[in-house]
Simulated assay, not measured.
Amino acid sequence: MLFFLVLAALISFYYFARDWKRWHLIKDTPTACLRSAHQGYIELEGKGKSPSNQPIFAPLPNHQCIWYHSLVERKETILEQKRTRTEWKILYQHTSDQSFMLDDGTGTCLVNPEGAEITSNEKLIWHGNTEWPTRTRVLDSASAIVALTSRYRYSERLILPGQQLYILGHLQTRSPATEQSVQNIARDLLRDWKQDRQQLLERFDSNRDGEIDQAEWEIARETARS
């Protein structure tokens, strides 16, 4: 009992420290406007928008959205020591990694959700008896009888177009001129590296055959670009 109490206390302290740090980060970071935002770590507020040429549809209810996390679970009954218990086994889950737009009234930017921690207020839960939902609209999702008698549970967290968003992240502005500048610098670096063939071989000749093959040259190009 003492072990579990100490473990619970440590877990509670971890979440408290994490949320305290996050609260201070939010409190101490002023909200920026995209029109005059600096490059780097910033805070933004605005409305979410779908890229005009790439609409996103959640796979379960087929709602149009700008981000989703989908989950399909199956109810399983397990017998242990003459006792039965019920648990939900995950059959399918998928999180959208497609970028969407943020409009704060002064400008727009592209948001990359990959690897981000996302909190969504829109959550749909409904039940059925097929592995994949046969309905595209949520019906009777709040019915306790349906939930008890159904074998499958479907849930989806969504961010809908037009919803107000709060974002903390790294802002980087890219333009054709910037990309061209990077290409020029990488080209100049490669030209300089070619002047010292011995050093070039030491850095990129991974198979030690005395030559830089196509694969090794691609690594050199990526290194120069970085």
Rank of each mutant, 00 (worst) to 15 (best):
P61G: 05
P61H: 06
P61T: 12
P61V: 06
P61N: 11
P61Y: 02
N62P: 00
N62C: 03
N62R: 07
N62G: 04
N62Y: 02
N62A: 09
N62E: 05
H63I: 10
H63Q: 12
H63D: 14
H63W: 07
Q64T: 08
Q64E: 03
Q64M: 07
Q64C: 05
C65E: 01
C65I: 01
I66M: 00
I66F: 02
I66D: 00
W67I: 06
W67V: 03
W67P: 03
W67R: 11
W67L: 00
W67T: 09
Y68S: 00
Y68L: 06
Y68A: 08
H69I: 10
H69Y: 15
H69A: 13
S70D: 07
S70I: 03
S70C: 05
S70L: 06
S70V: 05
L71Y: 02
L71C: 06
L71Q: 08
V72P: 00
V72D: 01
V72Y: 00
V72C: 07
V72T: 01
E73L: 07
E73Y: 05
R74L: 09
R74N: 09
R74C: 13
R74H: 10
K75V: 09
K75I: 06
K75H: 02
K75R: 15
E76G: 04
E76T: 15
E76M: 13
E76P: 04
T77F: 02
T77E: 13
I78D: 08
L79T: 07
L79F: 08
L79P: 02
L79S: 08
E80R: 15
E80N: 13
E80H: 15
Q81L: 09
Q81F: 09
Q81N: 15
Q81A: 15
Q81V: 13
Q81G: 09
Q81R: 12
K82A: 10
K82N: 15
R83N: 15
R83W: 11
R83L: 14
R83A: 14
R83V: 05
R83M: 09
R83H: 15
T84Q: 14
T84R: 13
T84M: 14
R85T: 11
R85V: 02
T86M: 08
T86W: 00
T86V: 12
E87V: 05
W88L: 14
W88E: 10
W88C: 09
K89G: 03
K89Y: 07
K89V: 15
I90V: 14
I90N: 04
I90M: 04
I90H: 06
L91N: 12
L91E: 13
L91A: 07
L91S: 05
Y92I: 05
Y92G: 07
Y92P: 02
